[in-house]
């Protein structure tokens, strides 16, 4: 009989994180319809949008770029909130936390798995928009992809956080309109943020999606890395990390 050497619990262990990411991706692989929906819907929406604004290419540029930032945020928010809710309700979370798994491993594992998916989703959507639908980007498409990825991370973070407050899948899905819709209205997608009522503009200044969309528009209109772009991406990244930390605090080893 072989003996197991005691493996200590550390805050973050690379092999436990990658094992978790591989497990999440393996679960998704048994669910090809979800993958297809995640990857194809943004492309179909962009395609639609291109011909909705058939007469005004300039509008498509601005809205299209904004949507490239919003899609990964929404999809990752939904997928993560449902996935972690299932982990909580199926008892697997309790089992994992009774094992030597660090909370950081679990969160990083989810972020890694969904981040990979977000890269595929964003690469397809960005490629389609730039090369086939004639989205006119002044800056590098790689920067669009970078912002999209950071937005996906933000979506994962928000999803993980709100799943702690949802007792059922019904509630988790309702957090989408509650958390995401106000941000879509106020992020500058429909009208520039400085045209809004001052109160709404102030609110939009503290919502992370506003910076995600601003970042996309910076790439759209500037050839080089602007200070505003760096500030926007830093804010999105910082918020994502902050919310991930808050999400980690909702994972309790001991529960009532």
């Amino acid at each position: 009989m072989s003996t197991t050497t005691p493996a200590p619990t550390r805050a973050l262990s690379a092999s436990r994180t990658t094992a978790t990411a591989a497990r999440v991706l393996r679960q998704l692989r048994h669910d090809p319809r979800t993958i297809a929906l995640m990857v194809l819907i943004p492309c179909v929406m962009l395609f639609l949008l291109r011909y909705v604004f058939d007469g005004s290419a300039r509008t498509f540029d601005s809205i299209g770029a904004s949507l490239l930032g919003i899609f990964p945020l929404i999809t990752m928010f939904l997928v993560t909130s449902i996935a972690t809710l299932r982990e909580r309700t199926s008892g697997t979370l309790e089992r994992l936390l009774a094992m030597p798994l660090g909370k950081g491993d679990l969160i990083a594992g989810y972020a890694l798995a969904f981040g990979t998916l977000a890269i595929i989703q964003s690469a397809l959507a960005t490629g389609l928009a730039v090369w086939f639908l004639g989205l006119d980007v002044t800056g590098s498409p790689w920067l669009l992809l970078l912002v999209a990825l950071l937005d996906a991370l933000l979506g994962t973070a928000l999803g993980l956080f709100v799943s702690a407050f949802a007792a059922s899948e019904f509630q988790a899905v309702q957090f989408m309109p509650a958390v995401i819709f106000p941000q879509i209205l106020l992020c500058g997608l429909f009208t520039p943020r400085d045209n809004m009522h001052p109160v709404l503009e102030a609110i939009s200044n503290v919502l992370p999606m506003s910076y995600a969309v601003d970042g996309m528009n910076e790439v759209l209109t500037h050839t080089d890395l602007t200070a505003a772009f760096i500030q926007d991406t830093a804010i999105v990244t910082g918020t994502a990390l902050l919310v991930l930390t808050l999400g980690a605090a909702t994972l309790k080893r001991r529960t009532a």
């Binding site: 197991t4 005691p6 493996a7 619990t9 497990r23 679960q27 048994h30 669910d31 199926s90 008892g91 697997t92 309790e94 089992r95 009774a98 094992m99 030597p100």
Partner: peptide, 16 residues
């Protein structure tokens, strides 16, 4: 955490 095996009443495994 490595020395205890725990089985909850409802099976806690990944269905997918």
């Amino acid at each position: 955490r490595t020395r205890i095996g725990y089985v909850t009443q409802a099976p806690s495994v990944y269905d997918d």
